[in-house]
């Protein structure tokens, strides 16, 4: 396949008088890991929200695998193979680990009222199959939780919740994973471990692409192929981590000019 997996073409997003994304263009290749960095309020999460259909863009276009998905609703974006985690973890706290992960697997599950309530053989098979798959996924990220799949997510510490959220995003076998500050609240070692696990899962499948928003520069440096730096909704630099870190405009954005 030729062409990029994902392309933002001159995307603008305004909230009233505030321009959160200003003429933002970028591309992402198959199997690439892209870091999206920038100070707080620079438009990183907004770009995720525009991409996943939570916000409609004010202007510009978004393409995924050559198809235009500008302003598509969140379901269509998910069906296309784009999944995400949230900056503030958004799991269903009263539900079990297994339930939460299965919420991420909608595309594969039977939908009809008949097959859900009356003739349930297909449902049973899916339950047995997904139980194993969800368990394997959890075992990768958090071994000790694999035997506690029936535990409510609300009883888990924040770190575990983030891991479960990543499992929820990965269970459907997506094409593109959007990680919104996965390391927030984690120690250095925990972050390191989490990134290893993500790369491990990625290595098993075929070419999962990742966009990661992150403040922990060690993470960005280690796992990304390329970085884009945003400031006030505008792209101010692009390149490998070493390149953007050396860029004077980037240094100004983070540290302030003069």
């Amino acid at each position: 396949m030729t062409g990029p997996l994902l392309e933002f073409r001159n995307v603008v997003k305004r909230f009233g008088g505030v321009t959160a994304l200003d003429d933002f263009s970028m591309t992402l290749d198959q199997s690439e890991i892209l870091g999206l960095i920038g100070p707080n309020g620079s438009g990183k999460t907004t770009s995720f929200n525009v991409l996943t259909g939570i916000y409609g863009p004010t202007g510009g276009q978004v393409f995924f695998e050559g198809q235009e998905i500008t302003g598509a609703d969140p379901r269509a974006v998910y069906e296309a193979g784009i999944v995400r985690t949230f900056q503030r973890s958004r799991l269903c706290l009263p539900l079990s680990i297994y339930d939460n992960i299965m919420i991420g697997d909608t595309s594969r599950l039977v939908r009809g009222l008949w097959s859900n309530l009356i003739s349930r053989r297909g449902l049973q098979e899916q339950l047995d199959m997904t139980r194993r798959q969800a368990r394997d996924l959890v075992a990768t990220f958090s071994g000790h939780l694999a035997d506690r799949m029936d535990q409510p997510v609300g009883t888990l510490p924040m770190i575990e919740r983030r891991r479960i959220e990543i499992c929820r995003a990965l269970i459907s076998g997506p094409r593109l994973l959007l990680l919104d500050e996965p390391s927030a609240g984690m120690t250095h070692d925990e972050t390191h471990q989490l990134m290893d696990d993500i790369l491990d899962v990625r290595a098993r499948g075929e070419g999962l692409s990742i966009i990661i928003v992150e403040h922990e520069m060690g993470v960005i440096e280690r796992i990304t192929d390329r970085c884009i730096v945003l400031s006030y909704g505008r792209k101010i630099a692009e390149g490998t981590y070493a390149e953007v870190a050396a860029d004077s405009e980037v240094q100004n954005a983070y540290l302030g000019a003069d």
């Binding site: 269903c92 539900l95 909608t106």
Partner: peptide
């Protein structure tokens, strides 16, 4: 349950 607890997250997973 997912819709009751978090509509946005539910929609993001199809």
């Amino acid at each position: 349950d997912a819709v009751r607890l978090d509509e946005t997250a539910a929609a993001c997973f199809g």
